[in-house]
């Protein structure tokens, strides 16, 4: 436990010290919320208040940027620069390390969600979540599933230089197609077809059902199942492909 807390603290310091990464993974969803909220926060989207719709969508974007993209890039850089290898030579148990990295990612995402909700309340008169427990469970599920996918993706990236290119190539289109910014209802058929299989579509649907439509999380078993299934796929890829050292040669 002492080692876990020590590493958790270290991870938080490392995250906030790296200003570029903190900007792209943590602040970008907040900035998008402020910008798009000012543009169409007052409109009605898919039958609900625009800013409320956007707030739940930005929490979806936030899980993709912190737990998925940010985690994947960080872990590839650490692997390629030899940091992971170095840590393996210390008495810190590997699972303690992984657990601390994941919990730290979740803490960051949670802070982001709280900030989005506070800004929505203060600037765009979005109501506070009426189902806080359901929301928290949804955030845990989303963070776990996307972190598993992020770790799974690290095995597909070969170099530190390529990590942000590969990860952004996956996550930016996903964020847009999944309808975190706009309602996917008006998308052309082929985009809707892609959106229908993406995990972020279902996670965003889940946050909107809980936050905007005040559903209990357990009434949304379909969305939970798809997000969890993707999480399991990510987990299998992570277990099979995760490496502590750069590839040789």
């Amino acid at each position: 436990m002492r080692l876990f807390l020590h590493e958790l603290r270290t991870e938080q310091v490392l995250f906030w010290r790296n200003r570029e990464a903190a900007f792209f993974t943590f602040f970008l969803p907040v900035i998008f919320f402020l910008v798009f909220g000012s543009i169409y926060g007052g409109d009605t989207i898919a039958g609900v208040h625009g800013a409320s719709f956007l707030e739940a969508g930005m929490i979806g974007y936030g899980v993709a940027s912190t737990a998925f993209a940010g985690l994947a890039i960080t872990m590839v850089i650490r692997r390629e620069s030899g940091v992971l290898k170095r840590i393996r030579a210390t008495p810190l148990p590997p699972w303690t390390y992984i657990a601390a990295v994941l919990v730290s990612t979740f803490v960051t995402f949670l802070v982001e969600a709280v900030l989005l909700i506070a800004l929505g309340r203060a600037l765009f008169s979005v109501g506070l979540p009426t189902r806080p427990l359901s929301l928290l469970l949804a955030l845990v599920l989303g963070a776990a599933a996307f972190a598993a996918m992020g770790l799974g993706l690290t095995s597909a990236v070969r170099s530190a230089e390529g990590s942000s290119a590969v990860v952004n190539f996956v996550y930016l289109p996903m964020a847009i197609i999944s309808g975190t910014f706009f309602s996917p209802a008006k998308y052309p058929g082929f985009l809707r077809a892609i959106a229908d299989v993406l995990p972020l579509t279902y996670f965003t649907k889940l946050t909107r059902d809980v936050m905007v439509r005040h559903h209990h999380i357990w009434s949304e078993t379909g969305s939970i199942a798809v997000v969890a299934l993707w999480g399991v796929i990510g987990l299998v890829a992570a277990i099979r492909g995760f490496r502590w050292q750069p590839r040789e040669g």
Partner: peptide, 9 residues
């Protein structure tokens, strides 16, 4: 290790 592996920040 042969190459440095440190946290730059």
């Amino acid at each position: 290790l042969q190459s440095s592996s440190l946290y730059p920040n």
